[in-house]
C-alpha cells in the first residue's frame, strides 16, 4: 500500500505547532510556572526550615522541594497536549489535514511524535533549570545531581510532564473536541485528583491515577503513604498514557471527520 512519507508528515506537523502562538505559549508557561514556583517554595523552605520540618518522619527531600511548582506547571503541559490535537477540531482544520494525509494512523502517530518530542525537550530544560534554581535557593539544605536517586528524580520530572502531555493529547483525540477535553482534563488534574488523593479511603483509588503515579518518579525518598515506588509509578503512568493514545487512535481511525 502506498503510504505518505513519514518525515514529510513530521515536518508538516512541526510547522503546524510552531506557527500557532497559543501552543507555543502554553509550553513557555509550563516552564515559567514550574521554575518560578519551585524557586519560591525552595526559598520559603530555607527561611523556615525548622518550622517546616518539625515532626517530620522522612528525610528532607531537597529535589522534591524544588519541584513543588510542578503541580501547577503540569496544567500548562496538559493544556498544550489538548490544544495541539484539539485545535484541529475547533477550527474545522481536521478535514483539511485528513484530506492531505488520509492514512489516519500515520497522521496521528506523526502528531504524537512531534508533540512528545517537543514536550520532552521543554520538560528537560524545565526540570534541570528548576532543579538547579531550587538547590541554589535551598542553601545549606541543597542536594546535588550526584547524590543517590537525584538524577533519576530530575529526569523523572521531565518524563512525568511529557507523559501527562501525551495522555492529554490521547484523551483529546478520543473526545475529538477541544473544549470538552479542556473541561474534563484541567479540573481533573487541578482539583479532582489532588483532592481525592487526600481523602481517606478514596485515596487508595486516587493513588492509581496517572498524575499521582507519575509524580512518584520525582521523589528521592519514597513517601510513607505511597503504596509503590518510582519505577512502578513510571510504569503505571506510562500505561495510562499508552491507553489514552491507543484509545485516541481507535477513535481517530474509525470516526467520520
Amino acid at each position: 500500500m502506498a503510504m505518505a512519507s513519514f518525515p514529510a508528515i513530521l515536518r508538516s506537523e512541526w510547522t503546524k505547532i510552531r506557527t500557532v502562538r497559543s501552543t507555543v505559549w502554553t509550553l513557555l508557561l509550563s516552564f515559567l510556572v514550574t521554575a518560578a514556583l519551585g524557586a519560591l517554595l525552595s526559598l520559603l523552605t530555607k527561611n523556615n526550615f525548622a518550622d517546616f520540618r518539625r515532626g517530620a518522619l522522612t528525610p528532607f527531600d531537597a529535589t522534591a522541594t524544588s519541584f513543588a511548582g510542578i503541580m501547577l506547571g503540569e496544567i500548562a503541559m496538559v493544556v498544550f497536549g489538548v490544544l495541539a490535537i484539539g485545535n484541529e477540531y475547533s477550527s474545522g482544520m481536521i478535514r483539511v489535514s485528513l484530506a492531505a494525509v488520509p492514512q489516519r494512523g500515520t497522521l496521528l502517530t506523526g502528531k504524537l511524535v512531534v508533540i512528545g518530542v517537543l514536550a520532552l525537550a521543554v520538560s528537560l530544560v524545565t526540570a534541570f533549570v528548576t532543579f538547579f534554581l531550587g538547590q541554589a535557593l535551598l542553601g545549606v539544605h541543597r542536594t546535588t545531581l550526584g547524590a543517590p536517586n537525584v538524577l533519576r528524580a530530575v529526569l523523572g520530572a521531565a518524563v512525568y510532564l511529557t507523559l501527562l502531555c501525551l495522555f492529554s493529547a490521547g484523551v483529546t483525540a478520543m473526545l475529538h473536541n477541544q473544549t470538552l477535553a479542556l473541561g474534563v482534563l484541567v479540573p481533573f488534574f487541578f482539583l479532582l485528583s489532588p483532592i481525592l488523593s487526600a481523602v481517606p479511603r478514596v485515596k487508595t483509588v486516587a493513588h492509581y491515577f496517572p498524575d499521582y503515579a507519575g509524580r512518584q518518579m520525582l521523589t528521592v525518598f519514597q513517601e510513607p503513604s505511597a503504596p509503590y515506588g518510582w519505577l512502578a509509578g513510571f510504569f503505571l503512568c506510562g500505561a495510562w498514557t499508552l491507553a489514552a493514545m491507543t484509545g485516541g487512535a481507535a477513535v481517530f481511525k474509525s470516526r467520520d471527520a
Binding site: 514529510a8 500557532v20 484541529e88 477550527s91 474545522g92 492531505a100
Partner: peptide, 27 residues
C-alpha cells in the same frame, strides 16, 4: 484538490503558514 464546506484554517495561523504545512505534508 478540494474545497469543502466547514473546513477551515486555524484562526491564529497566517495564510502562508497554512499553505506551508499543507505543502510539506504532500512534499
Amino acid at each position: 484538490g478540494a474545497l469543502l464546506e466547514a473546513s477551515a484554517s486555524h484562526p491564529g495561523r497566517t495564510a502562508r503558514n497554512h499553505l506551508l504545512w499543507l505543502a510539506q505534508s504532500n512534499r
